[in-house]
Design a protein around this nucleic acid. Structure first.
Length: 817
DNA sequence: CTAGGGTTAG
């Protein structure tokens, strides 16, 4: 008995501070008989502990192994078992297993060591197999055997079987065994069984309390875990470092800052501050609330740091928008001799994306490739796909995405979002359809949040509605994020009523759904309703943000509500503390410009406190186009090309202005300038949804399978609408050609091809929905009004600027756009 | 020489 205690079996090694229970826990009923009694007698000539502890790398362990063979010590069961453990601790399970296999006569220590070696290295099946093998050698498992075995159980049947077996051996209430069982039942979600064992335990040590708390925490029962924590406090048991590091992530997850702060005070009082796990947990806890100074304090006060400490501080800065500092810590950790792991690189990849470092992205990719980490875990592949997509490099993102052999739902979501955020909605849809067809993974909240905006972008109403019904089925409809996506979607597809209905349903806990609905009504020209909603928003106590005012100002602009727009602009900083940014100035200029107040807009720009950027000058140039002001247009375009000479859109706009005024030499000059810079006009395209499929038309495209029918229909339509008063407006033709050629050019505009195709492909009187990637041409706008009248159809056209609803010869925009 | 409960994630 004395030797057991002095030998370190219970006293020095034991981490528990609940000692009295152990003495009475029944543990001493089991006497250990060891066949390897050679440990003290035969190996005194070597300082075994020192030798083993000095092996911190596999190659050192191998040298020690060789030395022990030479010295003839390998026959000692004690020595060879230690080698099994040593290799396992170094993470080299195959060497551990080899050493184990070469031992002829194994005792219970040896078997236990091998089983726990497997478990520690994640080889759960091997651990169970090893247990059965142990039985065939007629070695009886003891209470060292079971905890790792329980940990290795991957399914509930296996677990229950092992549990029954343990009951028969009478080891069920050993604190280690029982704690393992409690944790296992939690893992399988059988919380009643776990709690049952816990309450029936005759003796509990800290480990048991921690087992049930962590069991609840890790399996989505945070609230219940905190209840047990209270129970524990009530019984006067002190939290230890394990409890603290278990509970903190739950506090963060439940957004319970005050609970965490209380624990912080407790930790200071009980001197747990410098504990590695506790410190790491606090770094993460405070980082989640953006309290980086406190996170940094914890990091600084750590006496020893491990990989998790470094990863945590790097992720803290990365998650809070300070990628440079995150990358600085990444270099520091390496200087400090720590080799980055997979999780380090996840944060680093995101930091690189945030700091827009294209060269760095290649380094990160190479770094991971060299270590073959992509096969180790999807998470790192997903992180790098995300990094490339955020840097706008969708090709590399897609290539890597295809190389991920086992994709999870996040992989798909990342790729869909990546395409969507780079404006490639049709590619996003292709990936989504692939995901659904292959049926590999079930879409989740993130999937809907990435695909619905893509459908909104191209105006695919039917497909989006299908998503909506799927969202209803999965019960995610009350999710604020998805709700907002759907509001935006219906708005962009022209379904204002549906958008409003949804808006009534979603929880309005922050400004986001308000912004969505205001912007939706704005592009439909319901400026007055927007202002009303803004009032409601303020009344409901929701604080408006920068986006709110962008939506509001652009709504005023689209509806010609100059006075109200001015009021908004003046009130935003004064009354709501939102400082106007360049986008707000852009909206304001746009508003004045559309109303024809070109000089006022120009003066306004000159008086701006910020340096106007391309979007501000671009708004004014657009107004010059509407009002045919070539003189101001020339001045503005010069300013514009100073700030952004690479954007082809402005050249097009300027050449439009010249063409409109019939100044063809100006048109040619601008065209030449653009050509010299190597700029190509963005090809215009329009799409129409037929039978849930999107058909895309490019301007002057003659390769469509129904091409002849489309042009025939267009010619018929032209005749019909001319009869009721349509006159082609050739000012929208940018080429200096003959009149009938001009008519042909207008007729082959992509939006008109899409409309004609819609008419011949759908039953009479059904609504036709068109999406155009650029602004709709003025002549097409006029023609569409007449077409809606002669065909008795509602035609919905969304362009890059706003929304047009043509019905019975008029457009919802009132020709003001 | 062997055992339970702990911190980092796209």
């Amino acid at each position: 008995m004395l030797r057991l205690l002095i030998g370190g079996r219970f006293l020095p090694n034991h981490k528990s501070n609940y000692f009295p229970n152990i003495l009475s826990s029944g543990r001493f009923l089991h006497t250990q008989t060891s066949s390897s009694d050679d440990s003290w007698t035969n190996n005194r000539d070597l300082n075994i502990d020192l030798l083993f502890h000095s092996c911190t790398k596999t190659h050192l362990a191998k040298r020690l192994h060789a030395l022990l063979i030479v010295l003839g010590k390998i026959q000692s069961l004690f020595i060879s078992t230690r080698l099994v453990n040593l290799y396992a601790n170094l993470g080299n399970i195959s060497l551990s297993q080899q050493t184990f296999d070469q031992i002829p006569q194994k005792d219970v220590y040896t078997w236990n060591s091998m089983i726990s070696a497997y478990v520690h290295n994640g080889a759960h099946t091997d651990a169970i197999t090893c247990l059965y093998k142990m039985l065939t050698f007629e070695v009886k498992p003891d209470f060292y055997t079971f905890p790792p075995v329980i940990k290795a159980c991957r399914d509930i049947n296996n677990g229950k079987m092992i549990h029954a077996w343990i009951s028969k051996t009478g080891l069920e209430w050993d604190v280690f065994v029982a704690a393992s069982l409690v944790h296992m039942y939690c893992r399988f979600g059988i919380f009643d069984a776990a709690y049952g064992i816990f309450t029936n335990m005759p003796f509990r040590d800290m480990g048991c309390w921690n087992a049930i708390i962590s069991g609840f925490c890790q399996n989505g029962k945070g609230e219940k875990a905190l209840q047990i924590l209270d129970e524990m406090k009530f019984e006067g048991i002190k939290l230890d470092s394990v409890t603290v590091s278990t509970v903190l992530p739950i506090c963060a997850q439940m957004d319970d800052m005050s609970q965490g702060r209380l624990i912080h005070l407790y930790v200071i009082k009980h001197g747990l501050e410098s504990d590695l796990f506790v410190g790491n947990a606090f770094i993460n806890f405070y980082a989640k609330f953006g309290e980086l100074i406190i996170s940094q304090k914890f990091f600084d006060s750590l006496v020893t740091r491990d990989l998790v400490s470094w990863n945590s501080i790097i992720s803290a800065y990365e998650q809070n928008g300070n990628p440079d500092r995150a990358l600085w810590f990444f270099r520091e950790m390496q200087k400090d001799g720590f080799a980055p792991d997979l999780l380090t690189l996840v944060s680093v990849a995101s930091s690189i994306a945030q700091s827009r470092d294209t060269r760095g992205s290649k380094c990160v990719h190479g770094f991971i490739l060299r270590r073959s980490w992509f096969v180790k875990d999807v998470i790192i592949g997903n992180a790098v796909v995300d990094m490339y997509a955020k840097l706008g490099n969708v090709e590399n993102a897609r290539e890597l995405f295809e190389r991920i052999s086992i994709k999870d739902v996040v992989s798909w979501n990342t790729m869909i979002t990546g395409y969507g955020q780079n404006g490639l909605a049709s590619d996003a849809i292709e990936v989504f359809q692939n995901m659904v067809e292959k049926n590999f993974v079930t879409p989740n909240q993130g999937t809907w949040a990435s695909i619905i905006p893509a459908y909104a972008h191209i105006g695919a109403l039917k497909e989006g509605q299908k998503c909506h019904s799927n969202v209803l089925k999965t019960g995610l409809i009350l999710d604020l994020y998805i709700g907002t996506c759907l509001i935006d979607f219906y708005g962009k597809c022209g379904k204002v009523k549906d958008a409003m209905l949804l808006f009534d349903e979603v929880p309005k806990t922050n400004s986001v759904p308000w912004n969505a609905v205001i912007s939706c009504l704005g592009i439909h020209g319901h400026g007055e309703t927007c202002l009303k909603l803004f009032e409601n928003m303020i009344e409901s106590g929701t604080h408006p943000d920068a986006i709110t005012f962008i939506s509001l100002l652009s709504a005023c602009s689209h509806s010609g509500l100059i006075e109200q727009g001015e009021q908004c602009f003046n009130a935003m900083e004064k009354d709501y503390g939102v400082k106007p940014g360049l986008k707000h100035y852009g909206c304001y200029v746009d508003m004045l410009g559309r109303a024809g107040e070109l000089e006022k807009a120009y003066d306004f720009i000159k008086s701006m406190p910020l340096t106007p950027d391309a979007s501000v000058w671009g708004a004014l140039l657009g107004a010059c186009r509407i009002y045919g002001n070539t003189d101001l247009g020339k001045v503005v375009s010069e300013k514009l090309l100073e700030v952004d000479e690479g954007n082809v859109g402005y050249y097009v706009l300027l050449s439009n202005i010249y063409a409109n005024a019939g100044k063809w030499e100006g048109v040619n000059r601008v065209r030449l300038m653009a050509n010299e810079k190597g700029l190509k006009k963005t090809p215009g395209w329009s799409s129409v949804e037929i039978d849930k499929r999107m058909e895309v038309f490019y301007t002057g495209n003659y390769s469509h399978s129904k091409c002849e029918e489309i042009y025939k229909e267009l010619e018929d339509l032209m005749m019909k609408i001319k009869v009721i008063g349509y006159v082609p407006d050739y000012s929208f033709v940018l080429q200096d050609v003959e009149e009938d050629e001009k008519e042909r050019i207008l007729m082959s505009h992509s939006e008109r091809l899409a409309i004609a195709y819609g008419i011949i492909s759908t039953p009479p009187k059904t609504v036709i929905r068109i999406f155009k990637n650029l602004r709709v041409c003025g002549d097409c706008h006029n023609a569409t009004k007449f077409i809606s009248k002669v065909t008795e159809r509602e035609i919905v056209v969304r362009d890059s600027n706003r929304f047009h609803n043509f019905k019975d010869g008029v457009c919802s925009c009132g020709d003001y756009w």
